[in-house]
């Protein structure tokens, strides 16, 4: 059995995390362009007064897409081990749940 030293595991810097196929700089650039376009779209939509309440789902969808692009490509969740996604998304979904629960408790979704 290979000798197993605790010090090897602690604070180690070198264990490769086995994400082999990293995207190229071109992909990163494309993502950046997409992020900018989506932000631009958010601002354009913002000035469409006729949208009224419709702005809420539009902004929500656009931001979620931006959010997803960054965590999938820039933070490599798309390529990395699923454990990382699990750990992060647990916190993220609970966070979203708490926000909506508090909004509901403070009367955001009451009729009228």
């Amino acid at each position: 059995m290979a000798m197993q030293n605790i010090n090897k595991a602690s604070d180690s810097t070198k264990v490769d995390t086995s994400h082999s196929e990293h995207p190229s700089a071109v992909t990163y650039f494309k993502v950046a362009v997409a992020l900018c376009l989506l932000t631009g779209l958010e601002v354009v939509v913002f000035f469409f007064e006729w949208l009224s309440y419709g702005i809420i789902p539009v902004l929500a969808v656009l931001s979620v897409v931006k959010f997803a692009l960054v965590i999938m490509f820039y933070m490599h969740l798309k390529y990395d081990h699923r454990l990382f996604s699990t750990l992060f998304l647990t916190g993220l979904f609970l966070a979203i749940g708490v926000i909506f629960a508090l909004m509901a408790l403070f009367g955001w979704f009451n009729a009228g």
Binding site: N7, K14, S18, G91, L92
Partner: peptide, 29 residues
């Protein structure tokens, strides 16, 4: 780090990287 390269963690992932993701999950809250 020469020592470290021999070592296998349970998941094969690095301790510090797991720590960072747990921290980010926590920071979401």
């Amino acid at each position: 780090s020469n020592h470290e390269s021999e070592h296998q963690t349970t998941t094969g992932l690095n301790h510090r990287k797991i720590l960072m993701w747990v921290f980010l999950g926590s920071d979401c809250m």
